[in-house]
């Protein structure tokens, strides 16, 4: 059992009760602070350095080949706790080079008045298509302006590196299977 140490509580001395030495030492502290380096960041001109893993505004990204990664599976829409995401799924043109991906969002809206920056959409996305990046200042004059549409989301998101190129591999496998005579489903 831990030992209890009883501290003796001395009555305050006259100097302490007069508060004056304390006032002087307090002044010493505050005055010394006046000559230290200022911590103010001149905000709009100087921006803070954000830590890694910062959760800013959710954005949609392209892969390095310029393919839009979202396949409008709508998992993020369903997981989003405040229901900030609204997706209208669409089909990819069968003639297109990426026709085997089959689906892409026709419209993708995130209502930033609802979003709570929880990051669940990023976590749930099977395509690594949605990321909370470093944009932290969203402003607008109306409610409509605060809804990010698909165009805006891609503009904010830009391109992020891809580690898998999942759909390229899929097509390569498909082609290889075809070459060996198997019909790939």
């Amino acid at each position: 059992m831990a030992e209890t140490k009883v501290l003796e509580r001395k009555p305050l001395s006259l100097a302490e009760r007069s508060n004056l030495p304390q006032i002087v030492s307090g002044l010493k502290t505050t005055v010394s602070h006046m000559f230290r380096k200022k911590v103010t960041l001149q905000y709009p001109e100087v921006r803070p350095t954000l830590p890694e893993g910062y959760r800013g505004v959710p954005t949609l990204v392209h892969d390095p080949h310029g393919r839009e990664k979202c396949v409008s599976c709508q998992l993020c829409e369903f997981v989003c706790p405040p229901k900030a995401i609204r997706i209208t799924p669409g089909e990819i043109d069968p003639e297109a080079e990426t026709a085997h991906v089959e689906k892409a969002p026709k419209e993708f809206e995130i209502d930033m008045l609802r979003c709570i920056y929880c990051g669940l959409c990023e976590e749930v996305c099977p395509e690594e298509a949605i990321f909370l990046q470093d944009v932290y200042s969203m402003t607008g004059y109306s409610r409509e302006e605060m809804v990010n549409n698909k165009e805006k989301l891609y503009e904010l998101g830009g391109t992020l590196p891809d580690h898998h190129y999942k759909w390229d591999k899929k097509r390569a496998a498909e082609d290889a299977a075809k070459a060996r005579g198997y019909a790939h489903s």
């Binding site: 505050t30 005055v31 602070h33 006046m34 380096k37 103010t40």
Partner: peptide, 10 residues
Amino acid sequence: KVSAYQHGRI
């Protein structure tokens, strides 16, 4: 100004 300087502000 003085309070700001005491707080390390500008």
